[in-house]
């Protein structure tokens, strides 16, 4: 069973399709990245998954069934537009939102205390939300998102507005949730976060799915026919190499269409060149992102 199955959903506002025929599945226990530029349709897709807005057509299944009151309690959702009641105290806020997910008061308080303690926020539990810093508020929101021990956690732009310390704290929290077998879907426009955390990804642009698969698959699909080597030897006159450019302390060798990296390696060894490092040159997701989005623009 998939954690989420999305089949050909479509949502239009007026004449503009915000999400156009998008399909994807999310496996249980993985971190799934939803990436795309601003306004690509990530939030609309997530809101449809949460049944906050209804798709014009298409089907969404959460844990094998249509979303209902019971399955809503198994999801933790951190929206992109998020905030808390300013006048409520931290602990009251946690207990109230936990109660809406079906957690009783005693359990909510106990878990809330544990989670606050881990985030070093326990001394603030009786403060009002408006007295906290923005970053603290965001961590409280993440606690609220996960207090009911959901199986599926959806985080929309979780790192926006966080300083490096809190970003690291949140990344650790996400990894820990994965280790405990939770499924996590996170949307972001920052590719580094995806590369660092995600197993698989879906890239959408202008409401359409443009890339879908494991991070490794996507990268290899977009790899340029090139190798990176570190060497002090003379690289001139090697057959099949069309160009050499320095790349982060190493050299990137562009290969012609008939040459594979294996062939280049053989040729280098034959010439007796000492190689300290040899690897396939993989584009970063950022480069892929820019390439795909750029192509779409043309």
């Amino acid at each position: 069973m998939f954690a989420i199955e999305v089949k050909q959903i479509l949502k239009a506002y007026g004449n503009r399709a915000a999400v156009n025929n998008v399909s994807f599945d999310v496996n249980q226990g993985e971190i799934f990245g939803l990436i795309g530029p601003n306004g690509a349709g990530k939030t609309t897709t997530i809101r449809m998954m949460m049944d906050i807005i209804k798709p014009d057509s298409g089907e969404i299944k959460v844990m094998g069934e249509k979303l209902n009151d019971g399955s809503k309690n198994k999801i933790g959702y951190l929206p992109e537009e998020r905030g808390l009641y300013k006048k409520m105290s931290v602990m009251d806020t946690i207990i109230y939102f936990a109660s809406l997910k079906g957690v009783d008061k005693v359990t909510a308080r106990k878990r809330g205390e544990e989670m606050l303690k881990r985030a070093d926020l326990l001394p603030h539990q009786n403060k009002r939300i408006e007295e906290l810093s923005r970053g603290m508020g965001q961590i409280i929101q993440v606690i609220i998102t996960t207090i009911h021990e959901p199986d599926l956690i959806i985080l929309d732009e979780p790192f926006s507005g966080l300083d490096p310390v809190n970003t690291q704290l949140l990344k650790d929290m996400i990894r820990e949730l994965k280790n405990r077998g939770k499924t996590i879907i996170m949307s972001t426009h920052l590719m580094n976060d995806i590369e660092e955390l995600c197993d698989r990804l879906l890239m959408i642009n202008k409401g359409r799915a443009v890339l879908y698969g494991s991070v490794a698959e996507v990268k290899s699909k977009y790899r340029n026919n090139a190798v990176l080597i570190e060497t002090k030897g003379d690289l001139t006159g090697i057959e099949g190499v069309t160009g050499i450019t320095p790349h982060n302390g190493a050299l990137e060798l562009k290969l012609d269409a008939n040459t594979t990296p294996q062939m280049v390696l053989e040729r280098l060894v034959k010439k007796g060149i000492v190689i300290n490092r040899f690897e396939l040159s993989m584009p970063s997701l950022t480069e892929i992102f820019i390439k795909v989005v750029g192509d779409e623009h043309e």
Partner: peptide, 17 residues
Amino acid sequence: GEEKENRVMEILLSSIS
């Protein structure tokens, strides 16, 4: 109005209809 301004609405709607 406050829930809209505080952006609490979407968190609420993820738990209730």
